[in-house]
Structure formats: structure tokens, C-alpha cells
Write a protein that binds this DNA or RNA. Structure first.
Lengths: 341, 341
DNA sequence: CTGAAAGCGCTTACAG
DNA sequence: CTGAAAGCGCTTACAG
């Protein structure tokens, strides 16, 4: 590959001049500029980003560590992050933690070694020493979706509390009293917040929430299946199940179908995180929708603000309940039948 | 951040020695090794991958350019690619082309600028000058899923021909005669191969395939919806629709539902690419499943072989038909009800 | 086994 | 406006 030296030789100028025209430095003569540009063209020269990064100490790269790419919510988040980053002149490298703290650490370390300019993370756990150290350290950082309490890092997320309350109201209105929840890991903020919001709403409606109706999942499909099987094995199974993410809802559907039961006739189901397929499942699934794209974009903006020396603040956006038929009611209006993702 | 110089000073050795212990070079005294390691620990030193890459001319990074991350097929492909790459000591940077040739070129260029060691691509089109030049150039490259004919690069893909034939046989066996297809872009190999296989199978069964039953899509949901609406507007609509990817099948479902029609009673539907949600759609969708994970892993192995100077060959794996209920038949066996992705 | 030195491909004060 | 030179943080022959 041609280097800046080759270009300089071809154009008959110094490498400094080549560098200047490449970086749009004002003080370059028109003549020098055209000769360099011609040489660049002739050699098919492309600046070596590695060398440039070493010299300037910036990579124009953002790291994004998410808990699970296979989760459509995070896929969409990643996509919006990349889009906004690209618009602002940054690339993004995605690290998929797969809900495993060790893998998460692996990716954080790798990204740090590559000297990314900033880190966007949706932590899988309560914070490993590495994660905590990074947050305290010099690398600009922003949490998206999930965050770690007590760490001084801006958080961009959705508040699902009101929507969870709406969901409980919806379920209660349909006559359901025995409501169960498939919770996410307590070590994640979304895991603990969703169950807490659910608890509060249940209390508000005077509904009991026995331990047997609280299943511990890990945000992945298999755990949703396992927990749901447990619910169905109960002497008195719940009338409704709230899966706190879409993959666990998928697992719940697997379990329900395996028993030959029907939603919502035999058991109602609702999920946190709305995805396009929920419109076409049997039946369409009632879900809580986050403004995913907006979260991703806001997170990037907050991070880039930090990187470029501006201040940035936390952002909290509302989530909303999208009622479909999985809890026992015909869709209330035609618009709810449309895709929302 | 501490540099190798700081470590050397702390350990009382030269940077050369530090570098040697970091790289497990054999000729280092036990004493030097422990002092260096202690210093590394004390300073929390991490080697700068940027500097190392500049010096060694290798980044231990693979680029993966795919046509659409939001397509579950590609999401899964990306995931398996990352897993296998990690196992072999490589990171991967994903570029999402979103089915746009200009974006694809953007990502290829960015990846090349970063001096990735090798490139995995599932081309969005027939090959831009940049893509062609890259394939001819020095960067090790492998095509996954889609490829560009006439370019001397190994291809790792699934052959869906037999499965498409099985699908037509299935449809024919259920009594359907008017079959329509939502094709992908003709400029992609998967786009042209799937329709070609369909054409051949149709001919084999003596079924006509009028132009009106060939809809041109772009592998994204919206095009599936649009094409399906066109089919439904026909004086004689098709009895069955074959969407050549899962997103276009989603769009087809949207269109069918918007008319208040039912699958398979009013119209049968099948898709290329199987995804977990197809088990739970209304009705469960008959689809052609690719060995996606295996494709991703094989592609990485082929690419790494090239990078590390071994020879690598193309790999073709079979796809298979998974019959569910969307074409008019009850599932033939219980196993088809299970998730397959 | 160890260190001094060169060099990877850039950018950027500094001098002119 | 331009070039010579230093230096970013590493690795690796080369000599000892």
C-alpha cells in the first residue's frame, strides 16, 4: 500500500505538505494542493488510520458494549448508535457480552486497548472492577438502557415505570388477579426496576405478589421458557405472565405452546420491549415499547459531547404500553395492529 | 495512560525487555520477567494496540460488511462470526450496509483505512469498483452468503436450490397452482439464485410463472408489503406467496393482515430464512432454514486461513425446508413446531 | 539474556 | 507557504 512518502515523492513535495492538504490545512498553495491530489489519485492512496491515531491520540471510534445482539431491542439500539455516530464522524465497534460479565470485560478491555475515544455501555451486571475503574478513569463513557448506580456517568434510558403501571391496570381491568413476572437479573438496573415497578403497581391495585409468581430469568429465551414451565406447574398457575424482555416472552410462548395451551384463553402474556414480530404472533402481543432509536441517538450525542469537551447530561425518555390481544381483549383501536418497531 | 516506557522505568529494565515479556519471548530471565510483571500490575499497564498494529502491520481484526443487521439472519451470522473470530484471536468490526451500495462502500473504505487483516463480505450489489478493486488487491477476503461472480475470492454459502424445489413440491402437493414470488435484488446472488431455483422447480411441475406473479423486492420489509399488495390487487391473486427472505415475509404478513385476510385460508405464505419467531406467528411459517451459525464459523475459518498464509476453499452447505402451517397443512410432525434458530 | 537504535506512517510545532 | 525533524508507543534485528 502506498504511504504518505510515496505520495510526497510522486507530487514532488514533502510529507508535511501532503499531510496538510489531506487535513485541509489552510496554508497550502493551490499548486501544491492539486499536485498532491493528483498523486493521491494516481496511487490510490488512502491514509493509514492506525498511524494517524497513534500520532493524534484519537481514533474517531466509539465502543458499544451491549448485553445481547441477538435481542432485537439491542440490535435496533446498535443500529441507531451506528447511524448517529456516522453522522458525527465516528465509527463504532460493537462488543456483544451475551449477558456474560466475563465477555463484557473482555470487550471493554479490547476496546480500551484499541484506544476508542469513548465507550457506550449497557452493563450486564452490577459492575466489575474493570468497568468501575474505566468509569472512574479517563475514557469518556455513557450508559445506555442499563446503568450502574453510584457511578458518575451520564445515563440515557427509558423510564418504564408508568407503562408498567398501565400494564397492571390493563390486566386488572380485564379481570386478571393472579399476575406473575419473569424478572431479569437483579444485578441489572432494568432487571430490578421493572420488577420494582411491577410490585408497586400490584400493591396499588391491592393484588398479592407471592414469591411463587416471581420467576428469575436472565433476559434470554431459555430462562423465559424455564420460568414459565414452573408457573404452569404450580397448583394454582398465574392468569397472566409479564416477561420483562422480548426474548423471555419468546421462551414463555415456547413453554405455553409445548403444553398445548393458548394465549390469552389459558394464560395472558405481556412483554417489556416491543418488536415488529409481536404484531404477527399468535396472538399479537401486548408490550411496552421503548423509543429505542431515540435512545441510541441521544446516547451517542451525549458521548460525543463528552469526547469533544462539552458537558453532557443524562436523558430519560418515556416508554409506553401498546395494547394488543395477548391479555384477553380485542385490540382497542386499529392503530395498535400496526408494527411499531 | 501508562506506556511501555513507564513500565520499563518502574521495572528497571529497557523497553525491549518489557516488550519481550509481554510477547512471551523465550529469552527473558525469570528475574526480569517477574519485575516487569509486577510493574505492569502496579501501573495497570495495557499495551497500546494502535502502536502495536502500526509496528507489526497487523491488527488482529476482521471486517464484516453485511447488508442489513436488522435482518435476524444477518444478526445471527454476525454473532457466529464474532464468536469464531474471538476463538481464533481476532476481533471483528461490523459494517452495516443497510442494502445500500454507497454505505457498503463507506464501510469497506473505513475498514481498509483501519488496516483490518481481512474482510468478510456479503455484497449488497454486483460489485462497486471499490469492492472489485479490494478483491483484486492485497487484503484477504471471503464472501459469505452472497458473492460476486467472476471474482476470485472464496465463497461460503448455503445452497437453497433443493429446498426451494422441496417447497414448490410441498405447495403443489397441497393443491396450490398459482404461486408467486417476492424476489430479492437481481444484482445479489441470493436474489437471482432463489428466483432461478423457483423458476426451475415451477417448470418441473408444469406450473406457469407469469410476470405478474414475480414481484421485485429489496430484501427489506417495506418491499414485501408493497409487492404483496400488488399481488392482492390482481384480478386473479396468487394462491401462495414465497418471500425470498424473512423481512419481506414480515412485510407480506403486514399487507395480508391489513386486508383482513388470513394465512393460509386466503393465501399461503412461505419464506426463505427461518427465524425463531416463525414458530409463533399466526400461523407458524413454513420456511427454508440455512445453517447460519455454521456458515459464519466456516467463513471465519476460511478468512483466517488466508490471512495466516494457508489456502482456503469455498464452502457450500445445504439449506432445508421446515414445514409448518402457513401453506395450508397441519404440521407434519411435532418437531417442526420447535424453534430452529 | 539484554539494551540501544531504527522504523512503522503519520502530524505538527518550529524556523524560514 | 514549505520542509526538516521530533515523536506518538510499540517491536525487532543487531551487537554484545
Amino acid at each position: 500500500m502506498a504511504s504518505i512518502k510515496d505520495v510526497a515523492a510522486e507530487a514532488g513535495v514533502s510529507v508535511a505538505t501532503v499531510s496538510r492538504v489531506l487535513n485541509d490545512h489552510p496554508s497550502v498553495s493551490e499548486d501544491a494542493r492539486t499536485r498532491v491530489l493528483t498523486a493521491v489519485e494516481a496511487l490510490g492512496y488512502r491514509p493509514n488510520a492506525v498511524a494517524r491515531s497513534l500520532r493524534t491520540d484519537q481514533t474517531h471510534t466509539l465502543g458499544l458494549v451491549i448485553s445481547d445482539v441477538m435481542n432485537p431491542y439491542f440490535t435496533e439500539l446498535a443500529r441507531s448508535v451506528e447511524e448517529e455516530a456516522r453522522a458525527l464522524g465516528y465509527s463504532v465497534i460493537i462488543g456483544n457480552a451475551d449477558e456474560r460479565p466475563d465477555l463484557q470485560d473482555h470487550h471493554v478491555r479490547t476496546l480500551l486497548d484499541r484506544r476508542i475515544d469513548g465507550l457506550l455501555v449497557s452493563p450486564t451486571d452490577g459492575g466489575s472492577p474493570l468497568m468501575l475503574g474505566t468509569a472512574r478513569g479517563g475514557t469518556p463513557m455513557v450508559f445506555v438502557d442499563r446503568w450502574i448506580p453510584g457511578v458518575d456517568v451520564p445515563v440515557v434510558r427509558a423510564d418504564g415505570r408508568a407503562a408498567v403501571r398501565d400494564l397492571v391496570a390493563h390486566l386488572h381491568g380485564l379481570g386478571h388477579r393472579r399476575l406473575a413476572i419473569i424478572a431479569g437479573p437483579a444485578a441489572t438496573t432494568t432487571g430490578s426496576e421493572r420488577i420494582e415497578a411491577f410490585r408497586e403497581a400490584m400493591a396499588e391495585y391491592g393484588l398479592p405478589l407471592p414469591d411463587a409468581y416471581i420467576g428469575q430469568g436472565d433476559f434470554q429465551a431459555e430462562s423465559g421458557r424455564r420460568v414459565t414451565e414452573g408457573f404452569l406447574d404450580l397448583p394454582e398457575p398465574p392468569e397472566a405472565v409479564f416477561a420483562t424482555d422480548n426474548l423471555m416472552a419468546l421462551g414463555a410462548l415456547d413453554a405455553i405452546r409445548a403444553r398445548g395451551l393458548r394465549v390469552p384463553d389459558d394464560i395472558a402474556l405481556a412483554a417489556f420491549d416491543d418488536i415488529r414480530w409481536f404484531v404477527h404472533t399468535d396472538p399479537p402481543i401486548t408490550a411496552i415499547a421503548q423509543p429505542t432509536g431515540e435512545l441510541g441517538r441521544a446516547a451517542v450525542r451525549a458521548l460525543v459531547d463528552r469526547i469533544e469537551g462539552r458537558t453532557s447530561r443524562s436523558v430519560t425518555l418515556p416508554a409506553r404500553l401498546v395494547v394488543r390481544r395477548s391479555c384477553g381483549e380485542a385490540a382497542s383501536s386499529p392503530k395498535d395492529l400496526r408494527s411499531t418497531t
